[in-house]
């Protein structure tokens, strides 16, 4: 059972990651390929503060969030002048630079050796040591995060983000400070990724630069795209599916590197098929969905004779 609980902890961490990435990709329309870097910054800051300086867990987490959000702003200031695919490549570049720093700044991060023995979280004298205690903690944090992200997205601020995604120039002409909004979106997304990183670090109790690679970003992007860009529920579903889907491979007797590669193949094939056949994902934001469902029932009613006039066809 501990194994299933472990998976659920990971799933809740990935839900925070994919929901936070969805703010940036799905709601604001900026393809961010450096999300693993924010995840890593949160993990490293929180782990180092808790282990080396001996700060309490809650303080380390808060600094992890602030650090990741600041990194988001610092990366955003130069990159946000760029359009779609250029922005994607620039964020990818920044992500790799940050990983190079993690790997080479050995006096602080211990480089490829990683940081072992990160203390388990402690809150008001209670220590979340076992897996099921941690599961409780991570699920609570995940629910609070998703609720906060939901509130952000459905606030006037969130509507401006979506207007930027739909038409930047139109939002600009309505007097919206696009760069400010994009920076805030990036900072909020990065901050939540930092929270997830901090949770991860205190859960696994060991981090090294290999966890925060570009493939990790691709996994998060897959979750967002699978669930549907611009759908918070979609991000949750995407994160759960992609955390659990590759697990059965573990039980097949295969060499470890083949197992890892098979997981990547599952993610990538899922992404390609989605892009080809259903680019909106499982629950892509579709303003017409309500009308379509309504049409379906009206049409049904007309077919079975409950309705005399045929409903108007939707476009």
């Amino acid at each position: 059972m501990a194994y299933l609980e472990h998976l659920l902890v990971l799933a809740s961490i990935y839900i925070i990651l994919s929901a936070s990435l969805n703010i940036i990709i799905g709601f604001t329309g900026m393809l961010n390929l450096g999300h693993a870097a924010f995840f890593g910054i949160g993990a490293y800051i929180s782990a180092l503060l808790a282990k080396v300086i001996g700060l309490s867990w809650i303080a380390s987490v808060i600094f992890g969030i602030i650090g990741a959000a600041l990194a988001g702003v610092l990366i955003g200031i130069p990159c946000l002048r760029l359009r779609g695919d250029y922005l994607a490549i620039a964020t990818l570049g920044f992500g790799e630079i940050i990983r190079a720093v993690m790997k080479n700044w050995t006096s602080v991060t211990r480089g490829p050796l990683g940081i072992p023995g990160i203390p388990k979280p402690e809150l008001l004298g209670y220590r979340f040591a076992s897996v099921n205690e941690f599961l409780l903690l991570s699920v609570v944090i995940m629910i609070i995060s998703v609720w906060l992200i939901h509130r952000i997205i459905h606030s006037p601020f969130g509507r401006v983000l979506r207007s930027i995604r739909e038409d930047e120039i139109a939002s600009l002409s309505l007097g919206k400070d696009i760069i400010k909004y994009k920076l805030l979106a990036l900072a909020i997304g990065a901050g939540f990724a930092g929270l997830a990183g901090s949770l991860y670090a205190h859960y696994i109790t060991f981090i090294d630069p290999t966890t925060f690679t570009f493939t990790e970003t691709v996994l998060m992007v897959s979750m967002v795209v699978l669930g549907g860009m611009g759908s918070l529920t979609g991000s949750i579903i995407g994160a759960i599916i992609l955390t659990l889907l590759p697990e059965p491979i573990r039980f097949v007797q295969l060499p470890t590197n083949v197992v890892a590669a098979s997981r990547q193949i599952i993610y990538s094939v899922a992404l390609i098929l989605l892009m080809l056949f259903r680019p909106t994902g499982i629950l892509g934001e579709n303003p017409n969905r309500k009308n379509k469902i309504l049409y379906f029932f009206k049409h049904l009613a007309w077919k079975i004779g409950l309705r005399t006039n045929k409903p108007e066809q939707l476009i």
Binding site: L31, V225, A261, I265, Y267, L271, I272, M275, L276
Partner: peptide, 28 residues
């Protein structure tokens, strides 16, 4: 080719997925 007229994001994501796919195939 099927994505040539469906915006910028879709082909870019497909390309990233393809690159991960080929890399994993080579690894196997």
């Amino acid at each position: 080719k099927p994505l040539r007229y469906s915006g910028r994001l879709a082909p870019l994501i497909t390309a990233i997925a393809l690159s991960i796919f080929l890399q994993s195939m080579a690894l196997i």
